[in-house]
Amino acid sequence: MRRASARLGHALLVLWGALTLTFLALHLGRGSVVDAIVGNNTQVTDEVRDRIAREHGLGEPLWWQYLSYLGRLLRADLGTSYQLNMPVRDAIAAQLPPTLQLMGAATGIAVLTTLAVAVATTRRPSWIRGPVTLLEVAGVALPQFWLAILLLTVFSFGLHWFPAFGDGPASLVLPAVALAVPMAGVLSQILRDGLERALEQPFATTARARGQGERGVLLRHALRHALPPVVTLFGLLLGGMIGGTVVVERVFSRPGVGVLLLNAVTGKDIPVVLGVVALTAAGYVTLNALVDLLYPVLDPRLRAAGPAPAVPGLRVEG
């Protein structure tokens, strides 16, 4: 119970920090907010400008704007977009499904690729491992936009395997792969390292001596030992994936939260930027809390608070 509340406090702290930093960055940045609301190509009188500033509370001191923003946030009011003339909540809600689809598909691809690649290359001769490791490193190191364009050029324009744009599930494949590659590249290396370490342990020898085959030792014994660091990193990389959606959605011209954020940042649409940041920070914190719940499932030794052994005082030596 104490751990859960500490966890919640930590989550709120992360959320608050992300919002505060974004708020300050936007308001202290260059350019007038009123100009942004008015639009670049429209000429208006000073009275109109004053009215706009008053309506959005832009004349108030910064700390007051900050506090009133937090106050509205507590009432689940994300404000109104300057540019779209609609509540931020509605704007995000409209763009969320395609982004969630994309991230879901990418996560699935990343996890399956990680498992398949790591299991297939663990304790293999270097002529198998070498090229695979090279691909993994390349997947992590290549700029994501470049990878996205490469995928688009080869598999869509060149081979015509997948549509470049559109709504169908087939159009999800390339952007999801582009998003999954960096994650899978990191995770499969970590997983393979963990598997190889676990396979060196005495319990692996004991299992082999019972007649367990190499694949069985790997799947039934070693995998569980190798997973915790992979899970930790997975939670952290999810944050990076949220950033990756901005690039990938842009390259594949997909609708989504990433593009919404991009337009809002360039247009100084502060309420939308803050709304998206609040959402992603909340999502990130929630996902990592879920990841934490996975540890005791993987490693029962972490269930320390569990019930005591059924027979009290039974500790017979030998």
């Binding site: 342990q201 319990f203 020898t205 004991t206 001596a209 007649g211 490693d299």
Partner: peptide, 20 residues
Amino acid sequence: LRGRVIGLIPQAALVALDPL
């Protein structure tokens, strides 16, 4: 053969049995 015709009793280090 292993485990059926010939068995191994290793030293009882904590990791001779799968701790998980």
